[in-house]
Computed example of a mutant assay.
Amino acid sequence: MDKRPDPGEAMPRSELHAMYGGNRQSGISISAQAGMIHLFSDPIHVESYGMPDGLDEEGIYLYTGAGQKGDQTLTQGNRALLTHKDANRDVYIWRRERQGDYRCVGQFEVDQEQPFISTDAFDADGELRTVIVFRLRPVGELAADAPVVTTTEALAYRGYEEKAAIGGRVRIERLQRRSSRDSEMDLAIRYRAHLERLGHEIRRVQILPPGEVRPFCADLHDRTDNVLIECKASPTRQALRLAIGQLIDYRRFFSPTPRLAVLTGSKPRQDLIDLCSSMTIEVIWLEEDGTFTSSFD
Rank of each mutant, 00 (worst) to 15 (best):
K85T: 13
E47G: 06
G59A: 05
G100C: 10
G27W: 09
S26D: 09
D53S: 05
I30Y: 04
S41N: 09
A121I: 09
E127Q: 14
P115H: 05
N88L: 12
K69D: 13
P52L: 04
L82T: 09
V105Q: 03
H84I: 10
G50T: 02
Q107V: 00
Q107D: 02
G67W: 07
G67V: 02
G77K: 10
L128T: 11
V133F: 06
Q99M: 13
Q107E: 13
M19R: 15
F108R: 02
E57S: 12
Y63K: 04
E109F: 06
T64N: 06
R137N: 11
R98E: 15
D90I: 01
G70D: 09
F108D: 00
H17W: 08
E15G: 13
C104W: 01
L81S: 06
Y63E: 04
Q25H: 14
W94S: 00
E57N: 11
L62F: 08
E15I: 09
P43K: 05
T83A: 14
F134Y: 06
A32F: 12
A66E: 15
R135T: 03
R79A: 14
H38V: 04
T83Y: 14
F40P: 00
D120G: 08
A18C: 07
G27V: 07
C104N: 06
I132M: 08
A18H: 07
G22P: 01
V46S: 05
D123C: 08
T130D: 11
S41T: 08
F40W: 06
T73L: 15
D71F: 10
L81W: 05
L82I: 08
D53T: 01
L81V: 08
I117H: 12
T130E: 12
I37T: 01
V133C: 07
